[in-house]
Design a protein around this nucleic acid. Structure first.
Length: 694
DNA sequence: CTAGGGTTAG
């Protein structure tokens, strides 16, 4: 079992073991805090002290049957109607289930009545008064368990307490708390917990894990941590459920160090993490995009011989998607299949997302084929994920087929996600007519246009220079309450570079609605008396208020707009500010043999601007007779996307325009090279004075 | 199914 998923883990493990910060070395802040809250009156040992004897005695060798984790107490539930059957009884009354016991059936009916009655206290108590006979402890639990509304559970619980029919034990509180958690009533849960303390009713691991998970569900992480620390204060050791619950609290807070610290302490105390704990950790590392962390989880699972189940595989695949690692995801998936686990829709969704995002077309299509061949389960998410995958891979025909299939399904229709994926496909493929057709179809089928669909349409209509349709779609979206986001603003900015004159003004009008600040900035750039300081200040403020992924597109587009309006100086200023802001990491790289200008992430205008700047600085170096490397190169990239291929071509034109001595490499499209000699003689030819001095 | 923990869209 452990060996079958080893193939995924063993990849490059040596490298991994060097780069991963082992949890043992992590700070233990969390535990210092839990020590600080120790009640001075009780003088209980700190967690570390509590765990010490355990780690010395139970960690290393041999069977650990004496630790509490092996023998967790089972539910104390007793079904009053199901007595331990004798062998004879078993033979004769095989079907004698409690459902047919009249007493239980009555109780169930009574519970149903309680569930159905009016929510008011009076109505509930009125029904409660009709109870056939005063309940025993077990019957009371049966009723309590069957109540759905937390208000009713609390009323019934109060009624039980007032009647004093039997002592109210921990289990009663636990059952009520579970119900309160469902109703997200942390305040009431906390009151009950304090009541338990006051009444000296024992709080056990079930109580604590319910309190903690309730706080978590209510988004009160600080309360969750607080109650975990209170638990330590009492000297109660967490069991495996409490561990996973608290690990999840830290994981959802993104507190990786705290989670790992707890993990390590738990391990030292003899806790054996199970698939749920690993699922929590895997998800946490996925959210952090931490590949080494995910491999640590896989390694630990292997070392402990934990056999992953479907949910754990799904979580790990999802995490690998977030970390952007298709290779490990693929081998993990194959391990899962080899183990005989049938993937569900979530598994396939996770995997297809990775393949699509990473443009692993072959693997994506192969998997899609296997899905059909094996009739693996499909659901709504999976259909839309397949459509998105088609968009990522540019599979227009496949998407059309799938979309048609979706329209014929019984259970659901294509929704705005599905339409958005199709708009994305038509938009990036430049298929304006089909995109517009889809837009009309959405209105007819009552599917609302979301902001991404709107962005895809605007992009597409902009490229096709269909200004009337563009404005119409934009106004439609705004009227339907679509709220422009940074991506839509970036799209409008990029579209603005396709238009001139009156049409440009119409695009800018749209932009003004979406972002008055951006619109004002464009006006500012246009004004002659604008000083650099105010450009810088305004632009920095805009960038800081923009989603990270939209910052570089903003800068690129604004530079393009400046160049279109012959504001070259402004274009250089924006590039400078953008570089200072870290938008173009790795733009310049230098080795002793070669200096390289990497413009792959720049727009046409930004690339030209960067190139001009570079050439200017090379010229100065030649003029000052400073050292140059043998080779100089500018890289535009070949462009894997349909619309990014333009960069190499326009760059080529620009190079020729300014007669720079760079030539495009024949082996590698988008790579422009010049030798040191080329540059020197070119500079000298431009300014003969330099040649004379030389 | 019987008191507590983990997974799904740009």
């Amino acid at each position: 079992m452990a060996t079958s998923f080893s193939s995924a883990i063993d990849v490059n493990y040596t490298k991994f073991s060097h780069s991963f910060t082992h949890p043992k070395k992590l700070p233990t802040k969390r535990f210092k805090i839990s020590c600080n809250v120790t009640d001075p009156q009780k003088q209980n040992p700190s967690l570390a002290e509590q765990l010490k004897p355990l780690s010395n005695t139970t960690l290393s060798d041999g069977p650990k049957k004496d630790t509490q984790f092996k023998s967790r107490p089972k539910s104390t539930w007793v079904n009053p109607a199901r007595r331990k059957p004798s062998v004879l009884n078993l033979q004769r009354h095989k079907k004698a289930s409690y459902e047919y016991s009249p007493e239980i059936r009555d109780l169930k009916l009574f519970t149903k009545k309680l569930n159905q009655c009016d929510g008011s206290e009076e109505a509930f108590l009125a029904v409660l008064d009709e109870i056939p006979k005063l309940p025993t402890r077990e019957n009371a639990l049966l009723v309590l368990n069957g109540l759905k509304d937390w208000e009713k559970a609390v009323l019934f619980f109060d009624w039980l307490k007032a009647r004093k029919l039997f002592p109210i034990e921990t289990i009663f509180y636990n059952v009520v708390m579970k119900c309160l958690r469902f109703g997200r009533q942390f305040g009431v849960v906390e009151d009950l917990a304090n009541e338990m303390i006051d009444n000296e009713v024992e709080l056990d691991n079930i109580t604590y894990s319910t309190i903690i998970s309730c706080a978590k569900k209510c988004g009160l992480s600080d309360k969750a941590v607080e109650w975990f620390e209170r638990m330590y204060k009492t000297g109660l050791m967490p069991d495996e459920v409490t561990y996973s619950t608290v690990l999840d609290v830290y994981a959802k807070l993104g507190k990786v160090e705290e989670a790992m610290s707890l993990y390590e302490r738990g391990r030292a105390s003899g806790w054996e993490p199970d698939s749920i704990a690993f699922s929590v950790l895997g998800r946490m590392y996925g959210e952090a995009g931490d590949y080494d962390g995910i491999r640590f989880v896989l390694q630990e699972m292997k070392a402990l011989g934990v056999r992953p189940n479907l949910v754990l595989y799904n979580t790990l695949l999802e995490a690998l998607g977030k970390a952007g690692k298709p290779g490990l995801a693929r081998s993990l998936f194959e391990d899962m299949i080899d183990l005989g686990i049938t993937p569900d829709a979530k598994t396939l969704t996770a995997l297809l997302k990775i393949y699509g995002k990473k443009r692993w077309a072959q693997d994506a299509l192969e998997l899609w084929g296997r899905m059909k061949a094996n009739a693996w389960p499909m659901d709504f998410f999976l259909y839309n994920t397949l459509l998105n995958m088609c968009a990522d891979l540019g599979l227009e025909e496949e998407a059309e087929g799938l979309f048609k299939e979706m329209k014929g399904l019984q259970n659901f229709r294509p929704d705005s996600w599905s339409y958005t994926a199709m708009l994305n496909i038509y938009g990036s493929g430049g298929n304006v007519d089909k995109a517009l057709e889809l837009f009309e179809e959405m209105a007819k089928s009552n599917v609302s246009l979301n902001v991404m669909g709107c962005t895809c349409l605007i992009q597409c209509l902009g490229r096709a220079k269909k200004i009337d349709d563009l404005v119409r779609v934009y106004e439609f979206a705004m009227a339907r309450g679509v709220r422009p986001d940074d991506k839509l603003c970036g799209c409008l900015l990029s579209v603005a570079t396709y238009f001139e004159g009156e049409d440009l003004d119409r695009v800018l009008n749209c932009l003004e609605q979406a972002s008055p600040k951006l619109f004002a900035f464009i006006k500012l750039l246009d004004e002659e008396d604008t000083v650099y300081g105010s450009v810088k200040e305004t632009f920095k403020s805009i960038l800081n208020n923009t989603a990270v992924e939209a910052r570089r597109p903003f800068c690129n587009c604004l530079i393009d707009i400046c160049r279109k309006r012959n504001l070259q100086e402004r274009a250089h200023e924006l590039l400078y500010i953008g570089s200072e802001h870290g938008l173009y990491p790795g733009l310049h790289t230098k080795t002793s043999e070669e200096w390289c200008l990497n413009v792959r992430s720049l727009s046409v205008g930004a690339a030209q601007t960067a190139f001009e700047e570079w050439v200017e600085s090379l010229t100065k170096i030649v003029e000052r007779k400073e050292a140059l490397p043998e080779l100089l190169s500018a890289n535009t990239g070949a462009g894997t996307h349909k619309y990014s291929q333009g960069l190499a071509n326009s760059f080529d034109l620009h190079v020729k325009e300014i007669a720079a001595p760079f030539t495009q490499s024949e082996d590698k499209a988008g790579l422009f090279v010049a030798t040191k000699e080329d540059i020197i003689s070119w500079v000298q030819s431009k300014s003969p004075a330099v040649a004379v001095v030389a």
